[in-house]
Design a binder for these strands. Sequence first.
DNA 1: AGCGTCGTGTGTAACGTTACATGTATAACC
DNA 2: GGTTATACATGTAACGTTACACACGACGCT
Lengths: 340, 340
Amino acid sequence: MTGETGRQGRVTIKAVAKEAGVSVAAVSKVLRNAYGVSPAMRTRVQAAIDDLGYRPNLAARGMRGQSFTIGILLYGLDNPFIADVVDGIHEVTIPAGYKSLLGVGRAKVPIETNLIDTMIDYRMDGLVLIGPRLSPETLALYAPQIPLVCIGHHEPQAVGFDTVNSNDFAGAGLVVKAMIARGHRDIGMISLELGVDHKTNVSDIREAGYLAAMAEAGLAHKARIARVRSVDPAPDDPELRAWLQSPDRPRAVFCWSDIHAMLLVNIAAEMGIAIPDELAVAGYDNSRPAAYSLIGLASVDQDAARIGVETASLLMSRIGGRSDAVHALVTPTLVLRRSI
Amino acid sequence: MTGETGRQGRVTIKAVAKEAGVSVAAVSKVLRNAYGVSPAMRTRVQAAIDDLGYRPNLAARGMRGQSFTIGILLYGLDNPFIADVVDGIHEVTIPAGYKSLLGVGRAKVPIETNLIDTMIDYRMDGLVLIGPRLSPETLALYAPQIPLVCIGHHEPQAVGFDTVNSNDFAGAGLVVKAMIARGHRDIGMISLELGVDHKTNVSDIREAGYLAAMAEAGLAHKARIARVRSVDPAPDDPELRAWLQSPDRPRAVFCWSDIHAMLLVNIAAEMGIAIPDELAVAGYDNSRPAAYSLIGLASVDQDAARIGVETASLLMSRIGGRSDAVHALVTPTLVLRRSI
DNA sequence: AGCGTCGTGTGTAACGTTACATGTATAACC
DNA sequence: GGTTATACATGTAACGTTACACACGACGCT
């Protein structure tokens, strides 16, 4: 022991109390903006906090009360959509005094559950899950343990947690209508292979929106969905190449994601297929390379920042005690570019 | 109180001890693989842990001992380099029983310091900083508080922490040599505006490597560096456009980053400048869109995964008690593509 | 037999914070 | 003037874990 301040020179609530000449309980109240503290006391304690450079120990905090930290679970880092969502979340949480820590789930169930467990074990105040691979049953298991809001998980009947999504149904409709306006009638779709919980995936909702828009335009008989296996295909993906070579390839195609749409545009260029004259393409996400003039990919913009803001607001109110479930939809827009 | 198990039904070390018929101290020892526990006791406790589905409370753990968690500070999420680095880190840390949580610093000093504080306050066992904007002085202040390894921060004389970097000096040399092999002599560079701590930035080391390689080839008089202001330029960045229009534009250009190189390739295409016949371009990072056939950008590959592995190994040994500083360099390779 | 040593196991005081139950003044009412 | 609110401040028991000091029996050595 080196004396008064403890071995690491770390400033604790005790030191602040001593410096300000008040009790630790009083300091704690000031820190939490709790009821029953006079303005005089508040300023005195605040001065001591500033003088000593005190920072609360989050681990200790988490043992008794709130930690003022939220956890965000992502499926990956290489996605501009996620970057914007996170920015949107911070726009709300940082002014509210919350910090956030992220975990990368790599779209694998064991990693995701492990990370969620970690976040719960750290006594975080709430969790945002972006595109979780977890089943509704698993989520229902976690929901009672911690305030939860999911993005990119369509489950409007869920009761224990909130969801925020782009209106994927409407977004697909925007694309189909724009293509019809361009004179196309033979419009196909490229989607993901069906998963086990496929009713909750964004790609499935986009499929439904596509089919509905086609039907509404009297083109139900033309509608067809090709499914690719890989979420993250290589630049020379054989599935996409095969699709482009197939004899009954449609005249226009709506891709569930920019990743596939951009690859399609590139492989088509290699194969000498003219875009959009021989094949019109539209994607989803309006990611940065879609705007490159060499790519020029029309794409649906989800308004990721707004999704983030909406999500964070819901999480804040849920941490505040709300228990009824809210399921919000954010309206997307279509960014027209050369490829359509 | 609802009775035996506590209000939230959460399983504590106490419950495990009771179930196994031993003391809490014994359970704690088993959890930490500490000395002084018989095989019989170990199996008995482990069985109880599995039966009850016990998970240690990290907040409580962090108050006394290790939390088995490391923090990773990133500057942003929209970068494939970072994604690969993080994967490399996990390759080492996960088998070692460590979890990791990320923070996004947005390349802003106050956010970065805030996040590092948070991670320290959570009693994490170690920190990885990827491309921190912090000054050597600030880092020296943090280093005594927590094991630290930096990526993308060149400070080979630092004593309190380790660094792992791509050999940016050599990477720049690879590009210059490849361009000379293609017959170019008029080779320029596009770099970042100088920051205050510019001796530690990767862009500055790449500049030095570029200048050295030019000098070595007897082209020192041809060498010139243009500096752009924005780290994250818009698709129609006026600075890059102006550079392309300038009368003394070089015949070939090495860009410090793919972000700028790809934009350059696109704006050049808009302006009718033929790549590589009128202008050869090479970037740094070998990011995914660089491989798109429509872009075809030659780029230096940093071997991000290896950097991650190296970093994690250093952090583990530093957590284990090592205190001398290691400064590792990873050898990059150049991926040749059409643009050069 | 007596004395250290070793291998195992237990009891319990921290760790830094919050929540709750108690004070203790001062003001407000009959 | 005595009771009752009201507002503020304090003392202290948790929270779940680890680290430390210690107890206990068995063993090997003089």
